[in-house]
Amino acid sequence: TTVHVNGVTYHFPNPEEAKKFVDRVVKEAGLTVEVKGNQWDVE
């Protein structure tokens, strides 16, 4: 699973890890998340 955060790419072994990361980032920074298949874009 690939997560893009403001142009930076993070790779995770599974969607659960990616979701935990995204949830944390979104809570801390108040960002928006767009999910496209296995790819997350966070802005």
Rank of each mutant, 00 (worst) to 15 (best):
V8H: 08
A29Q: 12
H4F: 14
V33A: 09
K27A: 10
Y10I: 03
V25R: 03
Q39C: 15
P13H: 09
N38M: 05
K20Q: 09
K36A: 14
V5E: 01
A18V: 01
H4M: 14
N14K: 02
H11G: 01
K19H: 06
E16I: 06
V26M: 14
G30W: 07
A18F: 03
F21A: 00
V26D: 04
N14L: 01
E34F: 03
T9I: 13
T1R: 04
E28K: 07
P15F: 13
A18H: 01
V35L: 11
T2I: 12
E34H: 12
A29D: 08
V25A: 04
V25K: 03
D23A: 08
V5F: 14
K36D: 14
V8P: 00
T9R: 08
D23W: 05
P15C: 15
P13Q: 11
V3A: 02
Q39T: 08
V42L: 09
G30D: 06
G30K: 04
F21Y: 03
G37L: 12
D41M: 14
V26W: 12
V33D: 09
F12I: 01
G7C: 12
V5G: 00
D41I: 15
D41T: 14
N6H: 05
P13V: 08
N38F: 06
V42C: 14
T32I: 12
T32Q: 10
N6K: 04
H4R: 15
E34W: 02
E17W: 02
G37F: 13
N14W: 01
V33H: 07
T32D: 09
G37S: 04
D23C: 15
F21R: 00
H11N: 04
T32A: 11
E34K: 09
E17N: 02
V26E: 06
W40H: 08
T9P: 11
V42P: 10
G30C: 15
W40C: 13
G30T: 06
D23F: 05
H11P: 01
L31P: 05
K27F: 11
F21T: 00
G7S: 02
E28H: 07
V3L: 04
P15Q: 11
K20D: 06
T2V: 11
D41Y: 15
V5L: 11
K27T: 08
N38G: 11
F12Q: 00
P15L: 12
E28V: 09
K27Q: 08
N38W: 06
P13E: 12
L31E: 07
E43H: 12
T9Q: 06
N14Y: 02
F12R: 00
A29N: 09
V26A: 11
P13G: 06
T32K: 08
G7P: 00
K19P: 00
T2E: 04
V22E: 02
V3W: 02
T2N: 03
Y10W: 03
V8T: 06
N38K: 03
H4K: 13
H4I: 15
H4N: 11
R24M: 09
P15E: 13
K19T: 04
T32V: 12
V42F: 07
R24L: 09
P13C: 14
P13I: 10
H11R: 04
V26F: 14
E43W: 10
A18P: 00
G30N: 08
R24C: 15
V22K: 05
T2F: 14
V5W: 14
A29W: 14
N14S: 11
V42W: 08
K20E: 09
H11C: 15
F21M: 01
Y10H: 03
T2P: 02
T1C: 15
Y10M: 03
V3T: 01
E43T: 13
V3N: 00
V33W: 10
R24D: 05
T1P: 03
